[in-house]
Each structure stands twice: as C-alpha cells, then as structure tokens.
Amino acid sequence: MNYKLLGSSDLKISEIAFGAMSLQGSDADNAALIQQALAAGINYFDTADLYDKGANESTLGKALQGKRKEVIIATKAGNQWRPDGSGWDWNPRKEYILSAVEGSLQRLQTDYIDLYQLHGGTLEDNIDETIEAFERLQEQGKIRYYGISSIRPNVIRAYVEKSRIVSVMMQYSLLDRRPEETCFELLQQHNIGILARGSVAKGLLVNKPATAYLNYTAEEVQRAANAVKTLSNAQRGPAQTALRFVLQQGPVTAAVVGIRTPEQLQDAVAAADAPLLNAGELEQLKAAVAVNVYEQHR
C-alpha cells in the first residue's frame, strides 16, 4: 500500500481509502471486513452522519475499537435529518455543525475526528459562519483538520479563498473528468488534497452494462469501458486500471472506494500494487471519450 500526505495536513493516508457508506452487513460482518482492510494496509476510513441515519458511523466506530491510533477517521456534517425521519435538510449553520460533531464523536466512540468535512455547500450559505464552526472545533481539539465534499467549482473556490481546508472530496473518473478543468490546478497550487470518489463510475467502467451516465450516452460509456478492458491484463484488471487512471493524476491523494464485500476490497487493494499506466496508456484512456466540463456552479 502507498501512503501520501493529505494536503497541508500531517495525515498520511493510504491511497486506497475505505468508503464505509456501502456497508450493509451486521456489526460483526462489517468489523471482519474492516479488519481485512486494516491488514491490507488501508488506514483511512470515510463515513458521514447522514449515512443510514448515523448507524454507519456507529458500525465503523465499533469495528475500529482498539485501533484508534492506527487509523484516520473522516466523517461529514451538514445534512440534518428531520425528526420524523422522512428526509433531511441542508444545514451548514454554525450552531448545527457544533452540535452535530457531538453525535458523530459518540457514535464513532472517539474523542476526536481526524478529518471533518462539510457534506455539500452552496454560495447561498453563510460560508464565514460555517468556517468559524470548523475553526472552533479545531481549537477545541475535537477535530484535527477539516475539508469539504463538493463538486461545485464556485463553492470550492470560495473555501480555498476563505478557509484552511486541507482536502476536497469530489467525484472523478474516466467518465467524469470535470475537475480537471476547474479544480485540479487550483487545489494543487494551494496544497489541498483531492479525495476522489466514484472512480469506477458506479461499476460502468468495470462490470456493469453500459447505460447513459452524466452527459455521456450508453454508446460512449461502452467505449470508455472497452478502453479500460483493452488495457487490462492478468496483473491489472479493469477495476485496477480504472483506479490507476485516477490515482496517477497528480493532485489526487487517494481514491475513496465504496466497499461492501471481501471481493470489492480485494479489487480495490490490488490497485495499489498494480502496474502503473504508462503515458501512452493514459492518453489512450483519455482519447476514448470526449472530456466533459461543469455546466453549472462555475
């Protein structure tokens, strides 16, 4: 497993990160899978208070008991469940962030969170107020660092200008190269790490039947999947090829992979040791479909 510093922080994280949102088993099953991930060298685990109404944080917290000093825990806040459980509302207000962290700390069974992330964001938010909440939590020692999870270039720019974020989580894959145009260079210039999610495009680059995705037609998705398959071999299967494409982009610190089964874990971990894509192979993948760009929130 390879490890990289996350932006300007001192968090040295595995380039394959465990996305806990996909966990669906019992606490015992989830703990067994997470122990396998630890044994494979994964040290970064990502969740959110939104996932399964907090139960995702709880199952992760139980699984990591006794391992706290060995792992880096990231969670998110900003989406507030309604009292009746019918859905959630966006709430980036200072008082809510300060209260939400207490629930996350309790469910995760820890007294600090390594990376606390705003789970979204709009330009209509009182961004200064939100930043004040994260800064206070950092001063109190309840969080070590903070970042945002957003695909909106205008929101990302605002936080780059106003805050001390160390990371941005965003969707990025061969079928979603939008961050290349508006975010990669900016974040690299400011030493802000990128946590890439959706690296296999919901499985469309690996094993799912082609269907329309973002602005791509099913035929274009199939071309991208075919390019991935063409460059795959015994040492680097389709999943590893798709992940290596993401991991070899300079600004990307880690790929946060949703893992639910031992097979998915094995596929993800194998990408860390898979043969690198050479320059020609990277260009071949990029040429498979036209690069897409953000049409909104620019």
Rank of each mutant, 00 (worst) to 15 (best):
Met1Val: 15
Pro92Asp: 04
Gly19Met: 11
Ser22Trp: 04
Leu243His: 14
Arg244Asp: 04
Lys69Ala: 14
Ser232Tyr: 12
Thr211Glu: 13
Ser14Tyr: 05
Lys62Asn: 11
Leu33Gln: 13
Asp114Phe: 09
Gln24Cys: 10
Ala254Ile: 00
Gly25Asp: 14
Gln65Met: 07
Thr47Glu: 03
Thr230Ala: 15
Glu139Phe: 11
Gln24Ala: 12
Ala239Phe: 10
Ile194Thr: 07
Arg93His: 12
Asn30Leu: 09
Cys183Gly: 03
Gln296Ala: 15
Val228Thr: 06
Ser163Asn: 11
Leu186Asp: 06
Gln35Ile: 03
Glu57His: 09
Gln106Gly: 06
Asn278Val: 07
Glu95Tyr: 03
Asn215Val: 13
Ala40Lys: 13
Val206Leu: 02
Asp49Gly: 09
Tyr213Met: 05
Val293Gln: 15
Gly250Tyr: 11
Gly141Cys: 04
Ala196Ser: 14
Asn215Phe: 03
Ile131Gln: 00
Tyr51Cys: 11
Ala100Ile: 06
Glu70Thr: 12
Ile156Arg: 03
Lys94Cys: 09
Phe184Ser: 11
Ala133Ser: 05
Tyr44Pro: 02
Lys67Val: 03
Lys229Tyr: 01
Gly120Lys: 11
Asp111Cys: 04
Thr217Ser: 15
Pro251Ser: 04
Ala39Arg: 15
Lys202Pro: 02
Ala55Gly: 04
Ser99Met: 06
Asn79Thr: 02
Glu263Asn: 14
Gln35His: 14
Tyr145Ile: 03
Ser173Met: 08
Gly85Arg: 02
Val228Cys: 10
Ala40Arg: 13
Gln264Asn: 03
Ser26Pro: 02
Glu263Gly: 00
Arg177Thr: 04
Arg136Lys: 14
Lys208Ala: 15
Ala234Lys: 10
Gln24Arg: 12
Asn215Gly: 11
Gly250Val: 12
Tyr294Ser: 05
Ser86Gln: 08
Val256Ile: 15
Val168Pro: 01
Gln106Glu: 13
Ala234Thr: 02
